[in-house]
């Protein structure tokens, strides 16, 4: 962004040599300011990554990487012998994330198609901000709703003693991912050229056929990117899953099992862990693993988004 501004201003400078020196200084300082901001974001990202790596390394003096990645047991405060395997937490995290996407993607695409293609402009003006407001609900409130409202229903429907399980987490995370996916999908649909729609309608296709067979496929890469970004949001969510999934340590075998995600393990344990202990460093290692996953997901989203055909 900064470099774009700079090129523009430089072009202007070369065409109009009459610019005074003070103006040049001003341009340069603004250029510097933007460059600094742009670099700062990158530096923060690199800084976080470096910190995580640096703080994770001591963990592997005592934990073998094999145990860390492939053991199902995570129990650093064990009565007998501490164990540091992230596999069941990793599976838990992936389960609620995938569950959330199964729940959120159809709803999001439907809503986005409605807002961008079907709704009258007045309805759109109301629906869009409502979707955006959904994003501003604090996660602890959503977790609370999960315990008091969603949980009991799940318990009743599936005949379980309680509703604190992966389904509950998936639904709540799905709701939290909705605004991201809807807004970006709607943008993608807006980007589909009018000529596509007009051609489809002219060939005798109905509105439904046009949306399903022409517009959504044309916007596919944008929609996939939207889903990936929504997924990144769901993976990193902490408070909601901590409250609503029961946090049992056992390896989940179905969606009706309680799950304990990587984020909730960090949130619960970091508060009381002794500074400088293996457990402390192991939590950073979990954080690093989580960072790498979300980074990969967001990077993929970005690559897919930038590869979309320029229409």
């Amino acid at each position: 962004m900064g470099s774009g501004n700079c090129n523009d201003s430089e072009n202007k400078l070369s065409t109009r040599n009459k610019l005074s020196l003070s103006k040049k200084v001003k341009e340069a300082s603004i250029h510097g300011c933007f460059l600094f901001n742009g670099l700062l974001v990158i530096l923060i990202l690199i800084g976080i990554f470096a910190l995580l790596v640096w703080a994770s390394i001591p963990a592997f003096k005592e934990i073998s990487i094999k145990e860390f990645l492939f053991s199902f047991n995570w129990n650093p405060t064990s009565y007998v012998k501490p164990s540091y395997g992230i596999l069941s937490m990793l599976v838990s995290t992936l389960m609620v994330t995938i569950g959330a996407m199964i729940f959120a993607v159809p709803i999001s695409i439907g809503t986005a198609a409605f807002i961008s293609d079907i709704a009258s402009s007045r309805v759109r003006e109301i629906a869009k901000p409502v979707v955006e407001i959904l994003a501003s609900i604090p996660s602890v409130v959503i977790g609370f709703i999960g315990i008091t409202l969603v949980g009991p229903y799940i318990a009743k429907i599936f005949n379980l003693p309680d509703g604190l399980n992966a389904i509950n987490g998936s639904i709540l995370l799905g709701v939290m991912a909705l605004p991201t996916i809807i807004s970006l999908t709607e943008d993608a649909l807006k980007g589909v050229p009018k000529s596509y729609t007009e051609a489809s309608l002219a060939l005798g296709a109905t509105k439904w056929q046009t949306i399903i067979r022409v517009r959504i496929p044309a916007a596919a890469s944008g929609i996939i990117a939207a889903v990936m970004l929504g997924m990144g949001r769901a993976i990193g969510e902490t408070m909601t899953v901590l409250m609503a999934t029961g946090c049992a340590n056992a390896m989940p075998t179905s969606f009706t099992d309680s799950v304990r995600t990587m984020t909730s393990a960090i949130a619960i344990e970091l508060g009381e862990v002794a500074y400088g202990s293996t457990h402390y460093y192991a939590l950073f290692a979990v954080g690093l693993a989580l960072f790498l996953i979300t980074f990969a997901v967001n990077l993929t989203a970005d690559i897919i988004f930038n590869r979309r055909p320029k229409l």
Binding site: P161, L164, C247, R260
Partner: peptide, 28 residues
């Protein structure tokens, strides 16, 4: 317990959440 807890124990946020869960779960 004098050993590690069963892995099936659901870890609740506080006393109140345990009371709330046991209220609703016949088998709790």
């Amino acid at each position: 317990v004098k050993a590690d807890y069963s892995k099936e124990v659901k870890e609740m946020n506080g006393n109140a959440q345990i009371v709330e869960s046991v209220k609703n779960a016949v088998s709790g």
